[in-house]
């Protein structure tokens, strides 16, 4: 892997492209599968070894890697990924930080003492913190969708998760037109919003 540290080699369409970190981030933002493949090949072994050394299993390592790539993908998409270090260093730092945070959550420890100088320098902490917040929201949203019941669950999932058009949703669920479906969607969304934020407030005062 040594020579790959200076230039990223991307295998696609049987041709080898050499990418800079900037190009890598741009192609990651587009969700290009060969870029993901490259990131997996070049970064996963290091992260796996690291997690393995820190008392994690292979499955733990893969979970952490997935989350780290998700973070980078989201940041790249929002054009928020401006690196002050190498891409591979950054993703490894993110993964390490996440793993330590997960461990400390398990043991109910304070995490602040665990972060080291490098992670603070490249600003991993906030990124990871945000990710964990999103993760909490996602699991809350999933719970709320279940509570919403049908047809709201289907309508909301189809629109916001499966990115279906209102036309398709209307015909799938047997609404007379898209406008009716839209009204139904807004009703469901309102219920979901109330459920989600009420629950959040309720959980805050627990």
């Amino acid at each position: 892997m040594g020579h790959l540290n200076t230039d990223n080699v991307l295998m696609s369409n049987n041709s080898t492209q050499i990418l800079s970190d900037e190009q890598l981030i741009r192609s990651l933002a587009s969700g290009d599968s060969s870029t993901l493949n490259y990131i997996y090949k070049s970064c996963y072994p290091t992260i796996e070894k690291m997690v393995f050394k820190m008392n994690g299993s292979v499955d733990d390592a893969y979970d952490i890697f997935q989350d780290a790539v998700t973070i980078l993908y989201e940041k790249a998409k929002k054009d928020e990924l401006h690196l002050s270090c190498r891409f591979s260093t950054y993703i490894t730092a993110v993964a390490k930080h996440m793993w330590l945070k997960k461990m400390s959550q398990k043991k109910n420890q304070s995490f602040s003492t665990l972060s080291d100088y490098l992670e603070e320098t490249i600003g991993v902490h906030d990124t990871v913190h945000q990710f964990f917040e999103f993760e909490q929201n996602v699991s809350k949203l999933t719970d709320c969708l279940k509570q919403l019941g049908e047809p709201c669950n289907t309508v909301i999932t189809a629109f916001y998760i499966h990115n279906k058009s209102m036309q398709d949703i209307a015909s799938d669920l047997g609404y007379t037109n898209a406008e009716n479906a839209k009204t139904q969607k807004y009703k469901c969304l309102n219920r979901l919003r109330k459920l989600f934020f009420n629950e959040k407030e309720a959980s805050l005062y627990k």
């Binding site: 993901l36 993908y73 998409k77 999103f134 996602v138 809350k140 949203l141 998760i161």
Partner: peptide, 12 residues
């Protein structure tokens, strides 16, 4: 944003 995050995560 939560939906987005969910979708991004599932995609990755």
């Amino acid at each position: 944003n939560t939906f987005d995050h969910h979708n991004n995560r599932e995609f990755i």
